[in-house]
Design a protein around this nucleic acid. Structure first.
Lengths: 136, 136
DNA sequence: TATACTGTAATTATAAATATTACAGTTTTG
DNA sequence: CAAAACTGTAATATTTATAATTACAGTATA
């Protein structure tokens, strides 16, 4: 699983944690121990998919555009990581009936598997994640 | 998903394809378009878990130790890729209640998710994979 | 108009995956 | 018995993927 997903969930959970004020990329980056530019790239994706809003300039930053109860981990996964479950396969080898088809065959198994996995992720919201973090 | 998994499935399917004779690492490597040493490493794992048997020396190679109907993709996954679904998380940050717990919280969500995904993989056997490859 | 931000592109550095080389040990076969 | 065809594994080199860093244009605030 790529790290965009966990950074996205981290960021959204942090925004849910302080719903009153915008969080800057620097603030989020320090919380997640990564570089601010990396956060801005991930949040750029979330913004494109309207999970957050951003405001430029002094005092700007990021806020949620939906209540945290209305955003699931599956929503986030689809934005940041769709398709990454797929196993890496070597190039197709036309000289071998196994090598020629394995990529496609495993591809369909994992594509369905991603949907199954998605149903699991869909059970958890950002609000749930915040609750789990705080009560620990 | 790491590539050990797809190489393992590829190898096992190839062994199922020619049940009569042992396959050498060179033969399998050519089918999968990768280096023989890499195949030997993956097959070493499968051997440790008794999914295959190997024979050294001239005319040696690898054979299945169970019928292909009795090996599922979940069996293979557990040997080659257990835990790889887990998203990469940055180090825990004790100064932030979100940063301090996110890794653990996501960890449990993905651990359960891996089991759900496993139930999906468990529906497919190596025999199924071979059938899918051949009828394409 | 200085300051604190976002947004992005380009570059550099680091880490992970993969290939390659090397060689010891094991069977088979001529 | 010796050459050939294998496995097994370690060590090294290469390639690729990730991540950090730098740079800078644009925007809102005070």
């Amino acid at each position: 699983m790529n790290s965009h997903f966990s950074l996205a969930v981290h960021s959204l959970t942090l925004l849910a944690f302080q719903p009153d004020r915008a969080a800057s990329s620097t603030f989020i980056a320090e919380s997640a121990s990564v570089h601010p530019v990396r956060i801005r790239k991930v949040l750029s994706l979330l913004k494109q998919h309207e999970l957050i809003q951003s405001k430029e300039g002094a005092g700007g930053g990021f806020v949620l555009s939906r209540p945290p109860e209305a955003v699931t981990l599956w929503d986030v996964y689809q934005v940041t990581s769709k398709g990454t479950l797929q196993p890496r396969c070597p190039d197709e080898n036309p000289d071998c009936s196994v090598g020629a088809n394995m990529k496609h065959v495993l591809g369909s198994v994992f594509s369905d598997g991603e949907d199954v996995f998605g149903e699991h992720l869909d059970q958890f919201t950002i609000a749930d994640m915040l609750k789990k973090c705080i009560t620990n």
